[in-house]
Amino acid sequence: MDLRQVACIAQKELRDRLRNRWVLAVALVFTVFALVIAFFGGAQQGAVGLRSIEFTITSLVSLVIYLLPLIALLLGFDAIVGERERGSLDLLLALPVTRLEVLLGKYLGLAAALTLSTVVGFGLVAVVLARNATRAGLEAYAGFMGSSVLLGLAFLSLAVMLSVLARDRTRASGLAIALWFFFVLVFDLLLLGLLVASGGESGAAAFPYLLLLNPADVFRVLNIFSLDDVRTLYGLTSIVPAALAKPWLMALVMFGWIAAPLGIATWRFRP
């Protein structure tokens, strides 16, 4: 594998997203939503304005779980199948470049665009929050931004996998939406149903480990234990054992969610 070929394809993908203002648009979406949550997140309790950074992180976690996976899936679902339908994939593969270089180059370019928009969008909010935040709070917010990037990359890997497996863009887009619906909305309901059906006995021991099967839940657990106040605001601290409450362990699980779909996509994309 020639890393220069991979970098060239990645730069092309990133330039395309910068040229069509995709990065700017997504960064603005993150900034606007994050600022609205930071200023008006406590409106139901009769409080408007900047509150503690712990409260802001808690609210932003819920926003990111719904919004970022959808953006990542929509960004990457046609990375390969779209090129195939337009006929440009055959032309690209006719050049002195391997399929692995094409796949990794496209993923890294899209990953760079998604990472840039996420860091810029939430980074602008960090500038606003920095005036009233402690050092521990800013470190927790930096951890939140890093985990958000990992969540986006995990769902981008899933999107690229779907793009390799799907026969056309229509099926790829449908599968992407179904995947978002399952991981973000249905998965936790199934776990809760399992917990209730088992009477809270046999299912309670396996419940925290089943959360690892969903990158959105891994992201949630990763941020729950960033600060003491965040643990209090969430109700999962009594369910998740201390063995899983380690940020480095959850980060490794998230890296696994990034690598596994890419590995499947690489295997299926072979000639």
Rank of each mutant, 00 (worst) to 15 (best):
P208H: 00
L103R: 08
F155Y: 14
T266Y: 08
G49M: 01
V218A: 08
G174V: 07
S198T: 15
G109T: 10
L211F: 02
D90N: 14
A25L: 13
A159H: 04
G203N: 00
R4P: 00
A43N: 08
L213M: 13
L110G: 08
A245S: 15
V218R: 00
W22M: 11
L189C: 04
G152D: 01
K246Y: 10
R169S: 14
D168G: 13
R4H: 13
L179R: 09
F40W: 12
L190F: 14
T232H: 12
E101H: 03
T232Q: 13
P261G: 08
A25F: 10
G199M: 01
A25K: 10
G76W: 08
G49L: 05
L249M: 09
G109D: 08
V127E: 05
V184W: 00
I65M: 14
L190G: 05
A172T: 09
F39I: 11
A113F: 05
L185W: 10
L28G: 14
F55I: 04
G121F: 00
L189S: 15
G109C: 11
V128T: 12
V120E: 02
D188R: 07
A166Y: 05
A259S: 13
I71W: 01
L249W: 03
A10H: 07
S52G: 11
A140G: 09
E101W: 03
G42H: 03
T237W: 06
V102W: 03
A130K: 07
I57A: 04
A251N: 07
V23A: 04
V127Y: 05
V97C: 07
L262C: 11
V128L: 10
R17T: 07
I239P: 02
L116N: 01
L185C: 10
A242I: 07
K12Y: 10
L165S: 09
T118N: 05
T232Y: 11
L179T: 15
D90V: 09
L158T: 08
R131F: 12
V26A: 06
L185P: 00
S59I: 00
A242M: 08
A113Y: 04
R17F: 06
A113V: 09
L50W: 02
D90C: 06
L70F: 15
L60F: 02
L192D: 12
T115A: 15
R4D: 12
A265R: 08
L189G: 06
L18S: 10
R169L: 07
A47Q: 15
L190R: 01
L95W: 08
G121Y: 00
K246M: 11
V196L: 13
S117E: 10
V97P: 07
A216M: 03
G46T: 02
L194E: 05
G109Y: 05
W22E: 10
I53K: 00
D217W: 01
S157I: 07
G200T: 01
G121N: 00
L104C: 13
F255S: 12
